[in-house]
Amino acid sequence: MKNMLTIAAGFPSLKSSFTHIDWEKIGVAFMEHFFQLVLITIIFWIINRIGKHIIRNSFQHHDPIEKQSARSQTVYAVVKNIFKYSVLFFYVYTILSNLGVPVGTLLAGAGILSVAIGLGTQGIVSDVINGLTILIEGQLRVGDSVTIQSIDGTVVSIGLRTIELQALDGTLHYLPNRSISTISNHSRGSQTISIFLRISDPFEIDRAKDLLRDQLASIKQDTDKIKATPIVLAPVVEKTYGYLGVQISAKVKAGYQTPMKTMILDRCLRTLAQEQIKIQN
């Protein structure tokens, strides 16, 4: 409400500037400079087309922009919009100046309104600046597994104002860019997964360790998602309850922690079951 009142306060000054304009004189100037205005329009249209072509070619190296990453597409859209509105501003300025409109007076009158609107849109500006920073620095990519504001999920979309994050339960969260202070990206570099198996009979721990070590020795050859041969340690004391058991840890490709953990656990359980070594949950 306060922002709306602030913006409304800027309108009287702009209205006053319009009342001092000789509109009849501007109408006559329009008829006298009609062909000049057409020529100016054509020139700015050509500038707009050439500028957009140059910008598109600058971003389109080998692949079409539509097939590039979300980051490249967003930066391209921002640059294109900045160019478009810059051309539009100078086009309108040139037209009004040619018609004899006191552009300086209008800008001065609109200054107060601009300040008022600026106060009401501080949040939007913060969103855009933070969004550009995230995109330019490459902190996130669509499909990354991340933790933002204690929310674990997958990045669905990266925009200038918000980031769409899909949580593990399917909930889609829209996070304003200005509220993002810390990003934990789990999709950069290799990730470590860890599995603890509590062996029912402590005297079977060493045998279980040897069996699992032999079973997992060749698992790296079955998939490129596992970066190194899993490490099997035993006997290991579980930290929370102090149980004795076997600890398996492995380096896997970022983003594949869950399926690789499931794959390794499945092989371990099958191997122990075949040798009749019981584990407890």
Rank of each mutant, 00 (worst) to 15 (best):
G10C: 14
S17K: 12
S17I: 05
F18R: 12
I26Q: 09
M31K: 07
T41Q: 15
W45S: 08
W45V: 01
R49G: 07
I50N: 03
G51N: 02
K52D: 01
H53C: 04
I55Q: 08
Q60F: 04
H62T: 04
H62C: 06
Q68P: 02
S69T: 07
K84G: 14
S86K: 06
L88S: 10
F89K: 15
S97R: 11
V115D: 09
G118Q: 15
G118P: 12
D127C: 11
V128F: 08
G131F: 02
I134E: 04
I134R: 11
R141S: 13
R141E: 14
Q149E: 06
T154R: 12
I158D: 04
L160I: 10
R161N: 15
L168A: 14
L168T: 07
D169W: 07
Y174W: 09
Y174S: 09
T182R: 01
I195M: 04
I199K: 02
P202W: 00
I205R: 00
D206Q: 10
R207N: 09
D214P: 06
I219N: 01
K220G: 05
K220N: 05
I226K: 02
I226L: 03
A228T: 02
L233Y: 12
V237Y: 03
V252W: 06
L265Y: 06
L265Q: 03
D266K: 03
A273M: 10
Q274W: 07
E275D: 09
I277K: 13
